[in-house]
């Protein structure tokens, strides 16, 4: 009798250890996920009493008919399309150079990784200052080359490029970190062999480094895509709480934020959230495939 009870208690004791985490995840991740799906079908909802008056697919028909949402979608895709590949290309080159036998190597590394730890919001505000039309440092430098001041943040045509420049600057650090880690796993013997075959630097880079690093490049690519699709704080900080001049920099999450927090359209915001979720889910599934291959590699 005694023994049996002791064992039974032991059987469930492990659950007690994981219970706090389970409760938090259930309440703040699983439940809100399910509810978000449900909420995207709320057509009449009273937040003050948390009551739903009617359901329907109107929220979806609304957002897909909404030119602002279309703009948010296309902006986000353009943003992702520029930020991710350019950031990866630049960071790959920098990582390969950092991996050379050079002086001040750890100093360079420390500097390059710095943007990774610093607040997006703070640096967005700093970039807002750098992009300032009249007193910004960037226009000053351009002026040294005889280029007329650019109205970076005040013109719809230059606002998105400014956002992209800032985001590339911010995202280099993470990519450099993981590329450097990857480069350090490539054995020196590959390069020794290449040197014996008198392959030049460029050939070493294109024939050895990039192929051997390809799983990590793929990983950085997917991670970059996923996080870039969620771009929001960058926009908020760079344009001082607006979505750029004439909504020229509105993104999916920004649209979600506005529908929800400014307009109190819970249903529409949830529909936008579901669209975001599906996009990210697609890339996550790809990432899992890539990660699996990385293990075999």
């Amino acid at each position: 009798m005694m023994r049996k009870r002791g064992l039974e208690l032991g059987r469930w004791k492990g659950l007690l250890y994981v219970l706090p985490a389970l409760v938090v995840v259930a309440v703040f991740t699983v439940y809100p996920l399910l509810r978000a799906f449900l909420m995207s079908f709320y057509t009449k909802y009273k937040f003050s009493t948390d009551t739903v008056l009617s359901y329907g697919i109107n929220n979806y028909t609304y957002i897909f008919g909404d030119s602002v949402f279309q703009k948010a979608l296309s902006n986000t895709f353009i943003y992702v399309l520029f930020v991710v590949p350019i950031s990866i290309a630049i960071s790959l080159v920098l990582a390969v150079m950092l991996n050379e036998k050079i002086r001040l190597r750890s100093f360079f590394q420390t500097v390059y990784f710095l943007p990774y730890v610093t607040s997006v919001v703070a640096m967005g505000i700093v970039f807002g200052w750098l992009f300032h039309s009249n007193y910004g440092l960037l226009n000053y430098f351009l002026g040294l080359f005889g280029i007329q001041p650019v109205q970076w943040l005040n013109r719809p045509s230059t606002a998105l490029p400014a956002l992209i420049i800032f985001s590339i600057w911010k995202s280099l650090a993470f990519n450099i970190i993981i590329f450097l880690a990857g480069l350090q796993t490539i054995g020196a013997h590959y390069y020794q062999a290449a040197r014996v075959d008198s392959a030049g630097r460029w050939r070493q880079f294109s024939r050895i480094t990039v192929p051997l690093l390809s799983p990590i490049i793929a990983y950085a690519f997917i991670i970059g895509l996923i996080s870039s699709f969620k771009v929001y704080a960058e926009v908020y900080a760079l344009f001082g709480g607006r979505a750029g001049p004439a909504d020229s920099c509105i993104t999916i999450v920004y649209y979600l934020y506005r529908q929800f927090y400014v307009n109190w359209n819970f249903g529409i915001a949830s529909a936008a959230a579901v669209v975001l979720f599906l996009i990210i889910l697609a890339f996550t599934v790809i990432q899992l495939r890539v990660a699996k291959r990385r293990v075999h590699y």
Partner: peptide
């Protein structure tokens, strides 16, 4: 699940 999706609920 992207955290941004959960903020509303």
């Amino acid at each position: 699940i992207p955290g941004e999706m959960l903020i509303i609920t």
